Computed example of a mutant assay.
Amino acid sequence: MAEITLRDGTDLHYELAGDGEPLVLIHGGFTESLTWEQSLPGLAARFRVVAYDRRAHGLSGAGTGERSVRGDVADLAELVERIDLGPVHVASFSYGAVVAMALAVERPELVRRVAAHEPPLLGALAGRDEHAEVLANVMEAYAAVRALLEDGEDERGAALFVDTAIGPGTWASLPPEARARFVQHAPAFLADLRDPDTVLGMDVEPFLSLDRPLLLTYGGETPPMYVAICDVLAEALPHARLHTFDSAGHVPHVSHPEDYVAVTSGFLTA
């Protein structure tokens, strides 16, 4: 267990494991660095891995400023610089994938390669008739999640998010301790939704200048919004390539860790 205090006084928790080229793992919304525990040993066998809790998640402090994607990027850049990692590989999923891609755009000197699983850039689907129904349904669901969280209905909001982002019936299948972690992170997710530059509104344009090798992945059993987003991004970003984890969904690093480690490691060391 390790910790740094950021310039604004916020404590950021991280764990180090393994040897090799540096690799930072970025978790998604409603989660923390513990989500990587199934894949961490395999990745640490090939890389110097840093798994950290984003601000207001896990063991990291919340700070006093507003939550934002740009704030997460600034936190990550400071972490990389403060522990002297040099340019890093980044593996990420969901909201964390947006942070990873944004870091590669804003601070390219800190990034080698990016593996991004299912970034929820719903704005990338806006104005595309073939994706209009998918986009409308998902935006309606996220609006309902936000309404529940605004009303203090953290468990109901977390349940709706999980069943929307991962798949219907997922919440009911989770053990009590997993549900408790989702509920714990409900305030942080609500803060993410309040971000004026929320990832749900971002489109392709902010990432057109991304010039680092980018692996975009999605699961063969994932909700259709992620497939559509990755297809749009792969078509628009010249340095991107696509891969499908055929039997997986939104969290292949949890459900199919051996496959995730093999594909991600192979791309990062290519």
Rank of each mutant, 00 (worst) to 15 (best):
V204S: 03
A132R: 15
F93C: 07
R112H: 10
G167C: 04
V227E: 15
S255F: 11
D72C: 05
D75V: 07
A158E: 08
D163F: 08
E37M: 11
G63I: 09
M225D: 10
A97R: 02
D246H: 14
R179Q: 14
R55E: 10
V50T: 14
V145G: 03
W171G: 07
T5Q: 13
V69I: 15
D211L: 07
L160K: 09
T31C: 13
T244H: 00
P120I: 00
S94T: 06
A17N: 02
S39E: 03
S33V: 02
T264D: 01
Y14P: 02
G63A: 10
T244Q: 12
G9V: 12
L103F: 01
P224S: 02
H239M: 14
H57P: 07
P41L: 08
H13W: 15
V111Y: 04
D192K: 04
D203N: 14
H27N: 12
F161G: 01
E130Q: 15
Q38R: 14
H27W: 01
A158M: 09
L268T: 04
G28H: 01
E258F: 03
E258N: 06
P252G: 12
L148H: 06
E235D: 15
P22V: 05
P224Q: 02
W171M: 07
F245Q: 04
G220V: 00
H117G: 04
F245E: 05
R107Q: 08
L210T: 00
S255Q: 10
T10K: 07
G96E: 06
G28R: 00
G65S: 13
